[in-house]
Design a protein around this nucleic acid. Structure first.
Length: 705
DNA sequence: GAGCACTGC
């Protein structure tokens, strides 16, 4: 076959040593050195490849070395919930204790810790919330920020706050764990600018001070330089991983159809290479489905005695059952699994038995446009760091191969790392959180990477329009502080806080819980036609918010859904999301109870008694989403206030094929060539002016309707 | 007129 000869230049990542018991993990050799660094320096940067054991071992070493004396705790933060729970379980087992005793975890809705807990794994988002209650994190002796190289929004904010906390807590130790050479950014960040420049000016004369460094020669030099620069404050330690070598193969000529090329490569591997499952990285569901049906089509041309290919999709929108299929042994057992996945398999989900990786080189990235307020979801070239991570998925159980569906030249042209989230997100929630922590000057906040000024000013404007900030950009009391406390986006928070005034707290709690627990509907499959039928009885003419309320009410009603997964299944609803909505609702209710919001009084009350419950809810929604108003045009598209972008009702909306006038929407996303608005509710134009007089002015200034 | 990368509080 010709295709395999198209793969040219190879490059082997040699990462040493196969599986070893935990006492023989590569990290065990560095135990003393690591403890020495933590003792001596406030900040230690751990460069650890996959499989080095850093996440499970370092907290245990620290515990054994006495860092949990005086009732202090070691925290290890993770960007994802599953990681926090599974790692905690593993460490509890290694330490021979019950999970939740000495070793525990804490994630939203699940606090598996006790007064005996000394090692605590938690999501970084949750630790950020803890800072609101305990600003100096005084319970903790050591905070290890794991997977910092992923640069999630919460990790970045956490690092900035930790830098501040460190100045007031000399005893606190911070460990930052990161993949390879990005460690330099972290040293640079924690060592003040002047110190860094001064050290750089001195050059690299003093090299004797560098030790405990393993790994490739070039890496040694970079790490040595960083150690020198961060002398008094931060140290870097490098740990080798426990992975098998992976051969990297590139295309000799670029392809304009990587899905087709992926399919060809699958068959080449199947016919020419040894055993082992195949993992394909594509950008989204549509590509995955195209790829899977192409594999099915071409399988029939294979010789009947050839072992079967078993293509399996993997993306977040699938139900738990569908996702679990990729972990089950191949059926028939002689078959070869081909897992066709989105980026979810890059870091969130690990599948053993994969020996071959096929990498399209693309990922869908969300980016927020501060000028239009529109989020875009676009397929984008991955970074070199992602390419390495994807390739590594082939070397977990034995030596593997990675087929990159792009040329080596294209690889060289990739960015080193992806654009951090803080540079492409709506920053309103971050600003709110920082202000609640007393960090008022956002522009001067020490971010690892500064967000563009436009993102900051758009975030400030958004908060100002909601009344969360005053004319001096200070958090308002109580509104701003309450919005910061609520674990929902600021506009939704405002709806919740207004709900008492509109006399619809119970309904709005359910709606808010449903909105944050999407996706509510299961993704389409062959039985597409059955879906609208099964869901029709929930549809509210007033729009998506009231429809979600109907679904929630039916789901929780003992005589209907009775919170059963089976009921969800028969109505094409996502059981996981609905179960989550029940928890979210309870949590949000606790906040509203605590705030003890006043109900309507006087004229307000008299007026509300005259309008229907549906209208009260819609008015309440309009009072938070007023900035997201749009009017349907004769051609059926929507135009936002003061906007020129044509927008379509998203096909998931119950207003998708309906004719309406004014609506407010919860979200606007651009995919492909269209801008879609989601979570729509029909409103009356006058309500907008009534509830946001500062935002909408009838004459002069503001937005005119 | 017809579509949904991934996390997290």
């Amino acid at each position: 076959m010709a295709a395999s000869s198209e793969y040219g230049g190879t490059d082997t990542n040699v990462i040493p040593s196969p599986y070893k018991p935990s006492s023989l993990l590569p990290i065990a050799r560095h135990r003393q050195a690591l403890l020495y660094l933590v003792e001596k320096y406030p900040i230690t940067i751990v460069v650890g490849q996959t499989g080095s054991g850093k996440t499970t071992q370092i907290p245990q070493y620290l515990h054994q070395a006495g860092w949990t004396g005086d009732g202090k705790i070691i925290a290890c933060t993770q960007p994802r919930r599953v990681a926090a729970t599974t790692v905690a379980a593993r460490v509890a087992e290694e330490m021979g204790c019950r999970l939740g005793q000495e070793v525990g975890y804490s994630i939203r809705f699940e606090d598996m810790t006790s007064s005996h807990t000394v090692i605590k794994y938690l999501t970084d988002g949750l630790l950020l919330r803890e800072i609101l209650i305990d600003p100096l994190l005084s319970r903790y002796s050591v905070i290890m920020v794991d997977e910092a190289h992923e640069r999630s929004l919460s990790t970045d904010v956490l690092l900035g706050i930790l830098k501040k906390i460190r100045k007031r807590r000399k005893d606190l130790r911070i460990i930052i764990s990161s993949a390879t050479l990005q460690a330099e950014d972290f040293v640079h960040f924690f060592v003040d600018g002047d110190e860094y420049e001064g050290a750089k000016a001195l050059g690299m004369a003093d090299m004797q001070d560098v030790r405990i460094i393993q790994g490739k020669e070039d890496e040694k030099r970079v790490l040595a330089k960083m150690n020198y620069m961060g002398q008094e404050l931060a140290r870097v330690i490098s740990l080798e991983g426990r992975m098998f070598p992976v051969d990297i193969l590139y295309l000799e000529d670029p392809t304009d159809d990587y899905v087709e090329k992926a399919v060809q490569t699958v068959f080449d591997i199947h016919l020419r290479e040894g055993d082992g499952d195949i993992l394909i990285f594509l950008s989204g569901r549509e590509e995955i489905e195209t790829c899977i049906s192409a594999i099915h089509d071409r399988m029939s041309a294979l010789h009947p005695r050839t072992p079967k290919l078993i293509p399996l999709p993997l993306y977040a929108g699938l139900s738990t059952d569908q996702q679990m299929a990729v972990f089950e042994p191949a059926d028939p057992p002689t078959g070869r699994k081909v897992i066709v996945s989105t980026n979810i398999a890059e870091a969130s989900v690990t599948i053993d038995g994969v020996v071959y990786v096929i990498d399209s080189g693309f990922v869908k990235i969300r980016a927020y446009n501060p000028h239009t307020g529109v989020e875009t979801l676009t397929a984008t070239a991955i970074s070199k760091a992602s390419a390495t991570q994807r390739a590594g998925r082939a070397g977990r159980t034995r030596p593997g191969k990675c087929y990159r569906l792009y040329t080596e030249e294209a690889y060289q042209g990739l960015r080193e790392t992806s654009v951090p989230e803080v540079q492409r997100s709506n920053l309103a929630p971050v600003i709110l959180q920082l202000k609640a922590l007393g960090i008022d000057n956002i522009v001067r906040f020490d971010f690892l990477t500064n967000p563009p000024a436009e993102l900051v000013s758009r975030g400030l404007e958004l908060l100002y329009s909601l009344g969360a900030l005053d004319d001096y950009a200070r958090l308002t009391k109580p509104l701003g502080y309450r919005l910061a406390e609520l674990p929902v986006n600021p506009a939704l928070g405002k709806i919740l806080l207004n709900s008492a005034k509109f006399g619809c707290v119970d309904q709005v709690l359910s709606i808010a819980a449903m909105i944050t627990s999407q996706p509510v509907y299961v993704s389409h499959d062959e039985s597409t036609l059955a879906h609208p039928q099964a869901r029709r009885k929930f549809i509210a003419q007033e729009g998506d918010h009231l429809t979600l309320l109907n679904i929630f009410t039916a789901y929780t009603s003992p005589s209907h859904g009775a919170r059963s997964a089976q009921w969800c299944h028969s109505h094409y609803l996502n059981a996981r999301s609905l179960a989550k909505a029940v928890s979210v609702r309870a949590q949000l209710k606790r906040y509203l109870d605590k705030f003890s919001l006043p109900g309507p009084k006087g004229e307000e009350k008299d007026f509300l008694e005259k309008v229907s419950q549906e209208e009260r809810i819609r008015r309440c929604i309009a009072s938070g989403l007023f900035a997201n108003a749009a009017r349907m045009q004769p051609d059926g598209t929507f135009l936002g206030v003061g906007g020129e972008v044509r927008m379509w009702a998203h096909p998931s909306s119950v207003l998708f094929d309906r004719r309406v006038d004014w609506v407010v929407f919860g979200e606007v996303v651009e995919t492909g060539r269209k801008v879609f608005i989601k979570d729509l509710t029909v409103v009356i134009k006058d309500w907008l002016v009534e509830y946001a007089p500062g935002f909408y002015q009838i004459k002069g200034g503001g937005h005119t309707l």
